[in-house]
Design a binder for these strands. Structure first.
Lengths: 304, 304
DNA sequence: ATGCCTTACGTTATACGTAATTATT
DNA sequence: AATAATTACGTATAACGTAAGGCAT
């Protein structure tokens, strides 16, 4: 059988036209290429070249050989690439998430449980998460369910082509509630609770990557302006140094290591919202065929 | 890039299941295969095997690699085979012929003119010759034309899909006339000439591979029986030792080195036939695109 | 005990580079 | 003179076989 380096040399000669140039590009000597081509001809048993004293060129068979060789090398390359890509995929956990807090938590949890694997986390709209789970772009997704609905009906799996609901496993993960963060001096800051209706019209400072939360707020507060912030650090900075209302959640506050309790005019007060939409239960969903792989994760979530 | 021998070793391991057996089949040592598999894994960068202390087997990636490797090796094999077959074809002249005498002549002529090439000659019905010429199964064909028609109309090219008549070149080659060979004692042996009509009903000894001649005789002598002979030497033997009538042609007699002139009862007399169908002009036909290749042949035929 | 895989080590094959030769532009 | 291919020859890489070791059935 013909060794690969001979085919590579042949293709290089086909590309560059002379042995000298091909040799240069391949970082080998001219005589080495001469020998390769001789050996190739010898092994195939078919003359591939027209030779004159200081010129060598491909004949009709040589041309065909070059094109076949090019094809074979490409197939080899595909083989290796596909294996590598499948392997890489088998070494990464892809999580699709609907909101930042569970994405942070899961990133951390997964890294601890699977220290050898690459953890890839994305925040995307729920529809894309379901589709991605079905198409194996994500092995895990975290979707939000309104807690009141969850407690009545459990989880409603959407219609997925190729992945019927009974092949999915859903595990309730944790709960998050949205509240309004107002400066102490704000007229509404004394209220015990508020609804979207009460605060509709306020100009809100808004971090962009909050996932599913933002569409809810937009819908519930059609008269408000939202000052979007792309960078989380900047957002936090402006929150702490301005008096613009914003949103907060219980989980977010629990993550804040140093709660800001200074009692100045910029101190903020969190007031719970009453609308049922702000009480969310996160649910982790995966294909049942992957349960074994994520056994450790499931155990930890259930025992939390 | 991955050398071919590594793929071959991998496929052998896939075929035989253990390194030992694969090594034996490949006629290499066990350790050599161990190293090959290690090297392959290393170069692809993906684990392909499950290893226990004295057992090695393919994992999911290994299985995929084996099937890809098998495919690539087959492609290589095809490449080489196709080149070799095209080359062999380029080194052989395929002639399709309608009758034995021109086939013998052409075989001889071509061998002399192209001593390095393989000459392949077949006697086939005219229809197949034309089709074969069109489909490049034959580079040359020799077809019969009734001399009277030829002298009036020249050659009539049949309708060939893919090969219009103006891409063909036809060269008149030589002429052959059929006669009846009768024992001297035969009642008709005194005639100066005969027609098929006169001899229809006779039982004829007939060599099988006479090409287009036989269908003509059959058609013209519907009441005759033909005693078919497959072997030419046998046919000649029976002819010379029996008194069964048979056919002969001027060209055939010209080729017979020692004309049998013994004047015994078995001596045979050749009597010309008068029907126009027995006067044939052979025509050599080839594609015009191959004229250059057969220049020497054409020159010789025209100068004959 | 036998079979199978791996590691270690020395050998051999062969692919490679350098230098020299020849021919062409 | 410069460029290109081939041949000749010595070298170095790497593939190979033998020998030895470990582990499992």
């Amino acid at each position: 059988m013909i060794e690969t380096y001979l085919l590579e040399n042949l293709v290089a000669f086909g590309d560059y036209g002379t042995l000298s140039e091909a040799a240069e590009k391949l970082h080998v000597s001219q005589p080495s290429l001469t020998r390769s081509m001789q050996k190739l001809e010898d092994e195939i048993g078919v003359p591939l070249f027209e030779r004159t004293k200081n010129r060598i060129s491909l004949n009709e068979f040589g041309l065909q050989a070059v094109s076949s060789a090019r094809w074979i090398l490409q197939e080899q390359d595909n083989m290796v690439r596909e294996l590598q890509s499948r392997y890489r995929l088998s070494r990464t956990i892809s999580l699709g998430c609907c909101a930042p807090v569970p994405s942070w938590d899961m990133q951390q949890t997964l890294s601890q449980l699977y220290p050898d694997l690459t953890i890839s986390v994305e925040i995307r709209p729920e529809e894309i998460l379901w589709r991605g789970l079905s198409e194996e772009i994500y092995q895990l997704i975290v979707v939000p369910v309104q807690t009141s609905i969850y407690q009545e009906d459990g989880i409603r799996f959407p219609e997925l082509q190729g992945t019927p609901a009974d092949r999915l496993q859903a595990v309730p993960y944790r709960r998050e509630r949205l509240s309004v963060s107002l400066p102490a001096a704000h007229p509404l800051a004394r209220e015990k609770e508020l609804s979207f209706k009460d605060i509709d019209g306020l100009t809100m400072l808004q971090y962009r990557s909050v996932g599913f939360w933002f569409p809810i707020c937009q819908e519930k507060m059609p008269h408000s302006r939202f000052l979007m912030q792309d960078d989380y650090a900047t957002f936090r900075e402006i929150v702490s140094s301005s008096s613009i209302p914003c949103f907060s959640t219980d989980l977010m506050r629990a993550r804040t290591t140093v709660p800001d309790t200074r009692l100045d005019s910029r101190q903020r007060i969190n007031i719970p919202l009453t609308d049922p939409e702000i009480d969310i239960t996160y649910v982790l969903v995966l294909k049942k065929e992957n349960r074994a792989r994520f056994q450790a994760l499931l155990k930890q979530i259930i025992h939390e």
